[in-house]
């Protein structure tokens, strides 16, 4: 019987960054959950990703590598995970709260009849062999502490709520390969149409410059992209900007977008509705640029600028550009 099974999601050949956070959670509770830490790598052509995943030094590494797992097809990925769990009988399954990860976690929990702990920001094992966790509810307005008895459990931690574990270059471990033997599929999927994201994607960047309804249209986003390029960050957006069709939905931050915790979050023309704050309030430093001094975003910002976004950000960009050019000359 395995103790903790971490789902290492591979997205387009790349190991998703949440994996390192899941490892932190696993390490924190592994003392109370006997059976060691295992990793499940599911996908097609995942050898490189599996190699990388081994970096946390798991006790065992399981791989299902199959053509049918090439696309983020929930039913197939869930079948693979359910198959592995059948073979390994883990006590706790840790899955990332990504679109695919959250889904296969839910499918696993329901199929196996295991309790699911969604969106966990704190977790600990209780002396009686159960778990206690904290999770935000009501769009983050309330934090609920929940408790559950003996496992197995499926746990989906909130992205960025836990520090990523460092890869400790330990001895090579040989992955256990499992042949994929799914039941007949009831759904079918096409090939993903991926929108080329300009620059970094918001959930990977250390600095995010996000625009909202205050930008008034798609054009000022060019300015934000230039700033992002200068500071090595990504461009994000509020739902108003996305719903207005100014930018792609992949850039949306918030309850129904991405939950991010960059080192620096610059919110430009974003009012700071609670559903938006949910996605960004754990950022290290928050800067708000808004023409309305009473905008709620200032309530959670470290630095605030009351002013017109175009004016402020144009000068901001120009100053950074000048400094960068000076720095370039100095080198």
């Amino acid at each position: 019987m395995a103790g903790i099974l971490i789902v290492a999601e591979v997205d387009a050949g790349v190991l998703r960054p949440e994996y390192w956070e899941l490892a932190t959670v696993a390490r924190a509770v592994s003392a109370s959950i006997p059976g060691g830490v295992s990793v499940a790598v599911i996908g097609a052509d995942v050898a490189a990703a599996a190699q990388q995943a081994a970096g946390i030094g798991p006790d065992t590494l399981h791989v299902i590598d199959d053509e049918r797992l090439a696309n983020p097809w929930p039913e197939a990925h869930a079948a693979a995970l359910i198959q592995l769990c059948g073979e390994l009988s883990p006590q706790m399954v840790l899955a990332p709260r990504s679109i695919l990860g959250a889904e296969i976690a839910a499918r696993l929990a329901v199929r196996c009849g295991w309790p699911l702990l969604q969106d966990v920001v704190q977790i600990e094992a209780t002396p009686d062999g159960g778990l206690q966790a904290v999770r935000p509810v009501s769009g983050g307005a309330v934090a609920a502490t929940v408790r559950i008895g003996a496992g197995p459990w499926v746990v989906v931690p909130r992205p960025r709520a836990f520090a990523p574990a460092a890869a400790s270059a330990v001895a090579e471990i040989t992955p256990t390969r499992h042949a994929f033997a799914p039941p007949p599929f009831a759904t079918a999927c096409g090939t993903p149409q991926r929108v080329a994201v300009q620059g970094l994607s918001v959930d990977r960047a250390k600095i995010v410059v996000a625009g909202g309804g205050g930008l008034g249209g798609p054009e000022p986003f060019t300015l934000l992209r230039e700033v992002a390029a200068l500071v090595g960050g990504a461009v994000g957006a509020s739902r108003v900007a996305v719903d207005s069709g100014w930018v792609q939905s992949t850039m949306q931050v918030g309850l129904t977008g991405k939950t991010i915790a960059p080192d620096l979050y610059i919110a430009v023309g974003i009012s700071g509705a609670i559903q938006h704050l949910v996605g960004c309030s754990s950022s290290q430093v928050i800067v708000a640029v808004n023409s309305d001094p009473a905008a709620p975003i200032f309530g959670i910002a470290n630095y605030g600028v009351v002013g017109d976004c175009k004016e402020v950000m144009t000068a901001f960009r120009d100053t950074l550009a000048t400094r960068a050019a000076q720095a370039g000359r100095a080198v």
Partner: peptide, 16 residues
């Protein structure tokens, strides 16, 4: 899971 506590989180940032 059983809910054993509810709290309103504080966002303690002071805007400069």
């Amino acid at each position: 899971p059983e809910v054993i506590d509810l709290a309103i989180p504080v966002t303690g940032r002071n805007c400069t």
